[in-house]
Structures are given as structure tokens and as C-alpha cells.
Deep mutational scan, measured.
Amino acid sequence: TEYKLVVVGAGGVGKSALTIQLIQNHFVDEYDPTIEDSYRKQVVIDGETCLLDILDTAGQEEYSAMRDQYMRTGEGFLCVFAINNTKSFEDIHQYREQIKRVKDSDDVPMVLVGNKCDLAARTVESRQAQDLARSYGIPYIETSAKTRQGVEDAFYTLVREIRQH
């Protein structure tokens, strides 16, 4: 089974770092803004072998026109913010609204991801993020692309959301 996953969120929150940590098991430290990259990885989730087709997208506003296209083809979405960047957390709402509009559905598989949880300088409390996820009816997972904490959990949870859909 193949799953088309799309990673969305503001610029600099760590979308590529999360994806590369999942696929290649290493942490990319330097920031190089993405336009669009796709990665494929075969994994076993709950005993089922599946192929993850992951689209890593641009957070930069100037590429926002490309969003409709990949939102149409994606089956599930990782909505990523950084726990030390309140603005990126506030941006999640717009991504969710755009996904709902493009998919013409209120019920699209999504996982809210709070990345950079290895950093002490948190400005978005776990509780705020949990409340937001609960209001959307989606899971919330904290990750660190640096330490790998929660990385597999985030992507695998999204696959489970798609399966249950």
C-alpha cells in the first residue's frame, strides 16, 4: 500500500529536517529553504509493509500558489509548527483551512506536530497545542528532528489516521 503524505507549515519550522531524519536517519543542521522535494521510503507499520511517498513543501509565502496542487494529491498532512515560534503555531489554522477548502472536506487525515521540542526556549505550551488538536479532532505529537524523538511516531500516526479514514 502506498501513502501520499504531505508536510506543511511555516518556513523554518523543520519540515525538511523531520523528513530527512525519518528517511535518512540524520539531522540536517543548516537551513536551506525548500521549494519542493519528495522522498520515498518502505516501512512496516503495524505489520503492514507500506511505501511512504512524502512531499516536503515550501513554507515560504512566495510558493503558496503551489499549495493547491499538492493538497489535492496528498492523502494525509503533517501540519508542523516549531514550539519556539508562536507565529508558526498561529499559521497552522490557515494551512488547515486551505487543506479543507482544496479537499472540499472537513475530515482530512492530519496530525499536528510541534517540532524542536529539544529546545528550552518554548513559547507554545503543550497544552495550547493539545487544545488546538482536540478542537480539530486530530492527534498532537511533539518531535525533535535533532534527537529523533517522536519522528517515526508522527509519520506513522498519520498513516494510521489515513487507514482509519
Score class of each variant (00 low, 15 high):
1 T>H: 08
1 T>P: 13
2 E>G: 03
3 Y>E: 07
3 Y>N: 08
3 Y>I: 07
4 K>M: 12
5 L>F: 07
6 V>Y: 06
8 V>D: 01
8 V>G: 04
9 G>C: 02
11 G>R: 14
12 G>M: 11
13 V>P: 07
13 V>R: 01
15 K>L: 02
15 K>S: 04
15 K>M: 03
17 A>P: 04
18 L>Q: 01
18 L>S: 05
19 T>V: 13
19 T>Q: 12
21 Q>L: 06
22 L>N: 15
23 I>L: 15
23 I>N: 14
23 I>V: 08
24 Q>W: 06
25 N>A: 14
25 N>S: 12
27 F>H: 03
27 F>L: 06
28 V>P: 06
29 D>N: 14
29 D>Q: 13
30 E>Q: 11
30 E>K: 09
30 E>C: 10
30 E>D: 05
31 Y>T: 06
32 D>R: 03
32 D>A: 08
33 P>H: 05
33 P>N: 05
33 P>Y: 03
34 T>I: 02
34 T>F: 03
35 I>V: 08
36 E>W: 04
36 E>A: 02
36 E>I: 04
37 D>T: 02
37 D>E: 01
38 S>F: 05
38 S>R: 04
38 S>P: 03
38 S>T: 14
39 Y>E: 02
39 Y>C: 10
41 K>Q: 10
43 V>E: 06
43 V>F: 10
43 V>I: 10
45 I>P: 08
46 D>A: 13
47 G>T: 10
48 E>S: 09
48 E>Q: 11
50 C>G: 10
50 C>Y: 12
51 L>V: 14
53 D>A: 01
53 D>H: 02
54 I>F: 05
55 L>A: 07
56 D>A: 01
57 T>W: 03
57 T>E: 01
57 T>G: 02
58 A>H: 01
58 A>K: 07
58 A>E: 09
59 G>F: 03
59 G>Y: 01
59 G>I: 05
63 Y>R: 14
63 Y>C: 15
63 Y>L: 12
64 S>C: 14
64 S>A: 10
64 S>V: 08
65 A>P: 05
65 A>I: 02
66 M>S: 07
67 R>H: 00
67 R>D: 13
68 D>R: 03
69 Q>P: 03
69 Q>M: 13
69 Q>G: 09
71 M>D: 13
71 M>V: 06
71 M>I: 06
71 M>N: 10
72 R>N: 06
72 R>M: 01
72 R>I: 03
74 G>D: 02
75 E>G: 06
76 G>N: 00
77 F>G: 00
77 F>K: 05
79 C>P: 00
79 C>R: 02
80 V>E: 01
84 N>E: 15
85 N>Y: 06
85 N>M: 03
88 S>D: 14
88 S>R: 03
89 F>M: 11
90 E>T: 11
91 D>V: 13
91 D>I: 15
93 H>F: 08
94 Q>F: 14
95 Y>F: 07
95 Y>D: 03
97 E>D: 13
98 Q>W: 13
98 Q>P: 01
99 I>W: 03
99 I>S: 01
99 I>C: 07
99 I>V: 06
100 K>I: 08
101 R>P: 03
101 R>H: 00
102 V>L: 06
102 V>S: 11
103 K>P: 03
104 D>Y: 00
105 S>G: 12
106 D>H: 10
106 D>R: 14
107 D>C: 06
109 P>A: 12
109 P>T: 08
110 M>S: 02
111 V>A: 05
111 V>L: 08
111 V>M: 03
111 V>I: 04
111 V>Q: 00
113 V>I: 08
113 V>R: 01
113 V>L: 11
114 G>W: 00
114 G>E: 03
114 G>C: 10
115 N>T: 14
116 K>C: 15
116 K>I: 15
116 K>Y: 13
117 C>R: 06
117 C>F: 08
118 D>N: 02
118 D>S: 02
119 L>D: 15
120 A>V: 07
121 A>M: 14
121 A>G: 11
122 R>F: 15
123 T>A: 09
123 T>F: 00
123 T>N: 04
125 E>Q: 08
126 S>G: 11
127 R>H: 08
129 A>V: 07
129 A>S: 06
130 Q>P: 08
130 Q>G: 09
130 Q>R: 09
130 Q>V: 09
130 Q>D: 10
131 D>K: 09
131 D>P: 03
132 L>R: 05
134 R>T: 13
136 Y>E: 00
137 G>S: 08
137 G>W: 00
137 G>T: 06
140 Y>T: 00
141 I>N: 03
141 I>L: 10
141 I>M: 03
142 E>M: 09
142 E>Q: 12
143 T>G: 06
143 T>Y: 04
143 T>F: 02
144 S>L: 03
145 A>K: 04
145 A>Y: 00
145 A>N: 13
145 A>P: 06
146 K>S: 14
146 K>G: 15
146 K>F: 15
146 K>R: 09
147 T>Y: 07
148 R>E: 09
149 Q>D: 09
150 G>P: 08
150 G>H: 12
150 G>T: 14
150 G>W: 08
151 V>F: 12
153 D>A: 07
153 D>I: 11
153 D>T: 08
153 D>M: 09
154 A>E: 03
155 F>M: 13
155 F>V: 10
156 Y>E: 14
156 Y>N: 13
156 Y>M: 15
159 V>S: 01
160 R>E: 06
160 R>P: 00
162 I>G: 02
164 Q>T: 08
165 H>K: 15
165 H>C: 14
165 H>V: 09
165 H>D: 14
